[in-house]
């Protein structure tokens, strides 16, 4: 094993930052699940709200992708 403490910290930090993607997964799951339960109660209103579903999913997923970007920056740019 070669390298130094700084490199080690970099890799650990990148790993920790990647956990954020799990959070995005949870968020997308909650949004989709709530949308589905709402849609099953009132299917007539569901179709009009799909754009908002996608906006919510995009927001949640984008935050996860930011943490992924931070992980990439730590690995390759710092």
């Amino acid at each position: 094993m070669e390298g130094d403490i700084a490199n080690m910290g970099k890799y650990i930090g990148a790993g920790l930052a990647a956990i954020g993607m799990g959070g995005a997964g949870i968020g997308v799951g909650i949004i989709a699940g709530n949308f589905l339960s709402g849609a099953l109660r009132n299917p007539a209103a569901a179709q009009g709200q799909t754009p908002m579903l996608f906006v919510g999913i995009a927001l949640a997923e984008a935050l996860g992708i930011f943490s992924f970007l931070v992980a990439l920056l730590l690995l390759f740019a710092v």
Binding site: F54, I57, A58, L59, E61, A62, I65, L69
Partner: peptide, 18 residues
């Protein structure tokens, strides 16, 4: 098509911030 639209939104959001 709806799936690709969702990805399109994600890309747009991330790219704007970047």
């Amino acid at each position: 098509k709806t799936l690709s639209r969702a990805w399109q939104m994600i890309v747009e959001l991330v790219v704007s911030v970047v």
